[in-house]
Design a binder for these strands. Structure first.
Lengths: 177, 177
DNA sequence: TGATAATTGTTATGGACCATATCAAATATC
DNA sequence: GATATTTGATATGGTCCATAACAATTATCA
């Protein structure tokens, strides 16, 4: 196999061997217009999981357009409502949010008068988080939107029992994987 | 209710009303050490879905540590192997990757000699994508790692039939939601 | 008690990922 | 053959995520 000067110019890329070019020549012009085959990709849990998650978030944002709440913001409001009086570190960490990144989130929610930081009397380093009246009202409306537009869509697509089974399996993965 | 000068300094935040401070005073010092209640959060599909996805990706990265392949890179290699001779636009779009963002990804894979861009003879604008021999070998090893370490873990956690049901529901969400 | 360590909220910063506008080269359209 | 479209690429900005560092406050403990 006379390979004339394995590298004519030193600017060639690592993959630029004769073998690859030969392989490529064999598939040149094949499969012009046809749809691509997903192949094993559609069996990869991570792939399907990620795509499903994107779709769900996308739908969530559409349902919440009138309230301008992201999934993360919604989760903060839910958690603060359920656990009033906790500080930023506690709320952030149970949501998997790092404290530095939680600051801007709270700045946003507080500027919209949805929740408030109150200096704790026990530990004057920390801020206690509470929903404002407006925050409670907005969250109530958000819950209704989620239930009627978002989760309802899921039930309609999967059926009640399947939806519950799905949630159970995802919880198991989230907690025990 | 005599509220002495509703706003002493104009620098007060919107949420700084007497009502919120009163509400906060009632929960000060409650629930010091106890664990937080997730409440309705654990029933929110989006929340559980996102957390599960993070766990799965995390595990995937650990399993692939020896090959240094991210989920996205793995999906590219899988798709190029199944569809050799397609161009960047086709591969990227079926993966939901925007063309500009696909360039750096390919630069990476190509610099590691896992795949190659070959100028198409049909349309000299486009690059045909092919796996190199090394790319094929690495992908083969990656598939084995995924099967024995990653997906096996899932089967062990959920059981074979549940794992298939999960995949089916996620596909349905990804495609029909 | 007082010196030292740890914690809380915060800022600054950098990386990874995602999205848009724009460009030159090549091709398609008419 | 003039114009529009497509392809890969660059530049750029936004969002999210992660780490280091800091002042104020609190905990530790010698």
């Amino acid at each position: 196999m006379t390979v004339s000067k394995t590298s004519e110019k030193s600017s060639e890329k690592p993959a630029d061997t004769a073998k690859v070019r030969k392989d490529a020549a064999e598939v040149q012009g094949q499969a012009s217009g046809e749809a691509l085959q997903l192949g094993e990709l559609s069996e990869q849990l991570g792939y399907v999981l990620k795509r499903a998650q994107l779709k769900v978030f996308e739908n969530f944002l559409r349902c919440m357009a009138s309230l301008q709440l992201t999934p993360a913001q919604f989760s903060v409001l839910l958690l603060v409502e359920k656990n009033p009086g906790r500080n930023q570190t506690e709320i952030a960490s149970t949501l998997g949010i790092l404290r530095p990144n939680f600051v801007a989130m709270l700045d946003n929610l507080e500027s919209r008068d949805l929740c408030a930081r109150i200096r704790s009397t026990n530990d004057r380093r920390s801020h206690i988080l509470v929903l404002t009246d407006k925050g409670k009202a907005v969250l109530a409306r958000a819950k209704k939107l989620v239930a009627t537009k978002h989760e309802a869509r899921l039930n309609e697509l999967l059926g009640q029992s399947n939806r519950e089974a799905l949630l159970g399996m995802l919880s198991k993965i989230a907690n025990e994987f």
